Amino acid sequence: MRTVVAVYTGQGLADPLKKVFQELLPDVRLVNIIDDSLIGDVVKAGRVPPGVARRLVQYYRHGEELGADVILNTCSSVGEVADMARQLIGVPIVKIDQAMAAAAAARYDRIAVLATLPSTLEPTMRLIEKEARAAGRAVALVNGLAAGAFEALNGGRPEEHDRLILETAERVAGEADVIVLAQGSMARMESRLSEATGKPVLSSPRLGVEQVREVLERFAGLEGGEAGAR
Rank of each mutant, 00 (worst) to 15 (best):
V43K: 10
V57P: 00
R110N: 12
S77I: 09
G46W: 11
D83T: 06
V91W: 02
A112D: 08
S37T: 15
V70W: 06
R61D: 03
T74M: 08
G90R: 11
G67A: 07
G51Q: 14
Q58V: 11
R110F: 09
H62Y: 12
G90Y: 02
G63I: 01
L117A: 12
L56T: 01
G63P: 04
R86L: 00
L66S: 04
V70G: 09
C75W: 03
S76I: 05
A53M: 09
V52G: 10
T116F: 04
V57S: 07
P49N: 10
D41T: 13
L56F: 02
V78Q: 01
V43N: 11
A45T: 13
G46R: 08
A104K: 09
Y59L: 15
V42C: 12
D83A: 00
N73P: 00
Y108H: 13
L72S: 07
V78G: 00
M100I: 11
V52N: 05
A103K: 15
Q87E: 15
G46P: 10
V81W: 04
Q58E: 15
S37C: 11
A103T: 14
I111N: 00
A115W: 06
T74G: 09
A115R: 05
R54P: 04
G51E: 15
L117C: 04
A45F: 12
V48G: 05
A115I: 01
I111C: 05
S37W: 05
S76K: 06
I89E: 00
L72I: 03
L117H: 08
D69I: 01
Q98H: 10
Y59R: 13
S76F: 10
G40V: 01
K95S: 04
A104V: 07
R55M: 09
E64A: 12
R47D: 12
Y60V: 02
S76G: 11
E64S: 06
Y108S: 07
L117W: 07
D97W: 00
L56S: 01
A45G: 12
A101K: 07
L114M: 11
D69V: 02
R61S: 04
G40D: 14
P49Q: 10
S76D: 07
R47E: 13
M84H: 13
E80R: 14
Q58C: 05
H62S: 10
C75I: 03
Q98N: 09
E80F: 15
G51K: 13
M84P: 00
L117V: 10
I71Q: 04
Y60H: 09
R61P: 07
V57G: 05
I89W: 02
L114I: 13
T74K: 00
S77K: 05
G40R: 13
V94T: 06
A85D: 01
Y59H: 14
G51V: 12
L88P: 04
A53Q: 07
G79Y: 02
A53Y: 00
Y59N: 12
A82F: 03
V52H: 06
I71K: 00
T74I: 00
A85I: 03
A82K: 05
R61E: 12
A85L: 11
P92E: 03
V113G: 04
G79E: 05
A112M: 03
Q87K: 15
D97Y: 08
A103G: 02
A99L: 11
Y60A: 06
Y108R: 08
Q98C: 05
S37K: 14
R47W: 11
G67Y: 10
